[in-house]
Design a protein around this nucleic acid. Structure first.
Lengths: 327, 327
DNA sequence: CGATGTTGCTTAAACGTTTAAGCAGAAAGT
DNA sequence: ACTTTCTGCTTAAACGTTTAAGCAACATCG
């Protein structure tokens, strides 16, 4: 592989001159410039990213601490957004995840201390108390999502999304609206619950605490939770399932109870699964802006790295109304 | 950030000694060793990955050329497999994609010449003739999928998957089996068609060329293709849709023609969408081993990098039978 | 015509590691 | 007691860049 020295020799100059030509810094005669460019071209020369990083003390690379738990659907889109956002600004993306027995916090620390990235994206800071503290200590640019108290951040306003969903159900005439929540330790649970309460209070609707149940993150959990809800005396006439798997389980439960989704009980998913439009009935859902989240995270982090202004951002889920919550 | 020099000073030795201690090479007295370790600990010293890479001429990093077109569902799983496979062996993953107006081949070339990765994963080599040639030229370890003639590779045997699917439909008594294919320039199209023909020939069933239609990659394309198929005089009694979106479009078309999926016409997806089990009727499908693909790609590439044996691998789709193709 | 800039290149240091080679001093063998 | 071998450290070069500083040669100016 050709180095700057090879090019220098081929062009009959010293490496420094080659560097000046290639970077457009320094003053070089047109003749020399031409010879250098030609030599570089002929040798397929490309600077060693490693050597350049070492010297310049920056790598044009964004680090991503890959979460241990990855919601498969969301995850792919977030990575897409990140890589596109990074590439648009000339950055690349380095993925790092925990080896066996390692915590996410440790991965972050390693990434930071290895000095091979100019900044780090940390998803779901919330889930890890240790990291929150560490995030503050780190002097390397860091952008996160999931906690509003770490700056800069990009948030998805799940509360607003839930408010919109509940409000829509209310307008449709539903009065007994239940919510199957994700694991309570996820900040998502808290955010959605706030939205749920806010919307119902605002509508002046009394709600039964028994309509708020945790379903975990699995289809099975959603099924069990929905069965419990539907078995109540005063059973809900609408169920919001926070996650896609919970919604699947719910649909199954509604069916098994001999009820019809959309007629006997409305179902709305807090996260839109692929093919939601093709289920029977088509499934209403909140469409989460995962791609935009990734892209914005990259953009914000790069702004931060460059010392530009990097305001916090908030993105909103979009309510997609289909037949599973009436027509 | 602490460097090896800082540690050396703190421990009262020279940098080389620190290096020897930390890498376990060289002979150092236990006393000195202890002092060095303590100093390193106190300063939170971690070697600069960049400097180490420069010196060792290897980075413990795998490069991934991120395709321009990313099937969102598959993509997330493949990345998961890659990152887990890499991490398991102490490697990290660098994502690189084309900037505006850049080809995938150019990204590959840049990645290779930048000398910041020890090997490259290239998905869908097939789609890009330029890359095939380049792949052969590159002396950096390269692993691919999608073309059996580039070594090493990890393939998904789509032909076998299709044979299994068709054979199952035949056993179920279906005789007029149609196939909605992905874009014909994808190797997938060719592989699936081979499987389709093989299975039908083996079963001694005559098939009508009109039952093989291209549907592209969108729901709309699947809808149109299915409408065309179902409008024929001798309409098929079973439709295999190569991709998830094609399957969605097909389901819609069956419905719009006033037919019942699973009773009037069987539908089988060549790629299983999330929630397939919860559609009505539950959708039969080939489950693609995307995660395993990613993991194996990483494993194979690392073996190649280490100079170990790295045989080619073949993975198989798994047929998941549900009610959309009879009971 | 000598002082002053400017142009175009070179020299050399630096970035943070690793590692071959060197070299004292101690232990061991003759 | 004198070589030899080991132990434990240091010196210095190397990896491939960038960039400040140096320095000729030449142009410009009073």
């Amino acid at each position: 592989m050709a180095t700057i020295k090879d090019v220098a020799v081929a062009a009959g100059v010293k490496p420094a001159t080659v560097s000046y030509v290639l970077n457009g810094t320094g003053s070089v005669s047109t003749a020399t410039k031409a010879r250098v460019l030609q030599a570089a071209e002929a040798l397929h020369y490309q600077p060693s990213h490693t050597a350049r990083s070492l010297q310049r003390q920056q790598s044009n690379t964004l680090g991503l601490v890959v979460p241990l738990e990855r919601d498969p659907a969301a995850w792919g889109l977030i990575v897409n957004g990140l890589v596109d956002g990074a590439t648009a600004q000339g950055f690349e993306l380095l993925l790092s995840t925990a080896a066996a027995g390692q915590t996410e916090a440790a991965v972050l620390a390693e990434l930071v201390h290895s000095r091979r990235v100019d900044g780090v994206v940390y998803l779901n800071v919330a889930s890890d108390g240790e990291v929150v503290q560490q995030g503050r200590d780190v002097h390397l640019p860091l952008v996160s999502t999931g906690r509003a108290d770490i700056h800069p951040h990009v948030m998805i306003d799940n509360e607003a999304g839930m408010v919109e969903a509940v409000a829509h159900l209310v307008v449709q005439g539903y009065q007994r609206i239940a919510l199957i929540m994700p694991p309570l330790e996820w900040t998502l649970a808290e955010e959605q619950e706030r939205g749920y309460r806010t919307a119902l209070d605002e509508a002046g609707i009394d709600w039964d605490p028994a309509w708020l149940v945790e379903g975990g993150a699995s289809e099975r959990g959603g099924y069990d939770a929905a069965m419990e809800l539907l078995g109540q005396d005063d059973r809900p006439d609408a169920i919001i399932a926070a996650l896609a798997p919970l919604a699947f389980g719910t649909l199954q439960a509604v069916h098994d109870m001999g009820l019809a989704t959309g007629r006997d009980v409305a179902v709305l998913a807090g996260d839109e699964p692929q093919g939601a439009a093709y289920m029977e009935p088509p499934l209403s859902a909140l469409r989460q802006p995962y791609y935009a989240l990734g892209k914005q995270l990259a953009g914000t982090l790069i702004a931060r790295i460059r010392g530009e202004e990097c305001p916090d951002h908030t993105l909103y889920p979009q309510l997609i109304v289909r037949r599973s919550c009436g027509e």
